Computed example of a mutant assay.
Amino acid sequence: MTSEIILFVNPTAGRGRGARAALPASRVLRDAGYRVRTVLGTDAEDAAGRLREALASRPAAVLAVGGDGLAGLALQALAETGTPLGLVAVGTGNDFARTLGLPVRDPEAAARLAVRTLEGPGPRPLDLGQVGDRWFGTVLAAGFDSRVNDRGNRMRLPAGRFKYDLAILAELAAFRPVPFKLALDDGPVLDLDATLVAVGNGTSYGGGLRMCAGARLDDGLFDVVVVGEVSRAELVRVFPKVYKGTHLSHPAVTVHRARSVTVEAPDITGYADGEPLGALPLTARCVPEAVRMLAP
Rank of each mutant, 00 (worst) to 15 (best):
M1Q: 11
T2L: 07
S3E: 15
I5G: 09
I6Y: 12
L7T: 11
P11G: 13
P11C: 14
P11Q: 13
R15H: 14
G16M: 13
G16W: 12
A19L: 15
A21D: 10
A21C: 08
L23W: 07
L23H: 13
L23I: 15
P24R: 12
S26D: 13
R27T: 14
R27Q: 15
R27I: 02
L29H: 04
D31V: 03
A32Q: 08
A32C: 11
Y34L: 05
Y34T: 02
R37F: 01
T38S: 10
T38D: 03
V39A: 05
V39I: 15
G41V: 11
R52C: 12
A54S: 14
S57T: 12
R58A: 14
A61T: 11
V62K: 12
V65G: 10
G67R: 05
L70R: 03
A71K: 06
L75I: 10
E80R: 13
T83Y: 01
L85G: 06
V88N: 07
T92K: 02
T92W: 02
G93N: 07
N94I: 08
A97N: 06
L102K: 13
R105W: 05
R112S: 12
L113K: 07
A114N: 10
T117P: 07
P123S: 07
R124D: 06
F136P: 05
F136Y: 14
T138Y: 01
T138P: 01
A141Q: 12
A142S: 15
A142V: 02
G143F: 10
G143R: 08
F144G: 04
D145S: 09
R147C: 01
D150W: 01
R154E: 15
R154H: 09
M155P: 04
G160P: 07
R161F: 03
F162T: 12
Y164S: 03
L169H: 01
E171N: 02
R176E: 14
P177D: 01
V178M: 12
A183F: 00
A183I: 02
L184F: 00
P188L: 04
P188K: 14
V189C: 08
L190W: 05
D191Q: 07
A194R: 09
V197P: 05
A198C: 15
N201W: 08
G208L: 07
L209W: 10
M211N: 02
L217A: 13
G220N: 07
V224Q: 09
V226A: 01
V230W: 01
A233M: 11
R237W: 05
R237N: 12
V238N: 02
F239W: 15
P240T: 08
Y243L: 07
G245S: 08
T246K: 13
H247L: 03
S249L: 03
S249M: 01
S249P: 00
S249N: 07
P251D: 07
V253S: 00
T254F: 00
V255A: 10
H256M: 00
H256G: 01
S260L: 01
V261P: 04
E264T: 09
P266D: 14
T269A: 00
G270R: 05
E275K: 00
A279T: 11
L280Y: 04
T283S: 06
A284P: 02
R285S: 08
E289V: 00
V291D: 06
L294F: 06
A295K: 10
A295N: 11
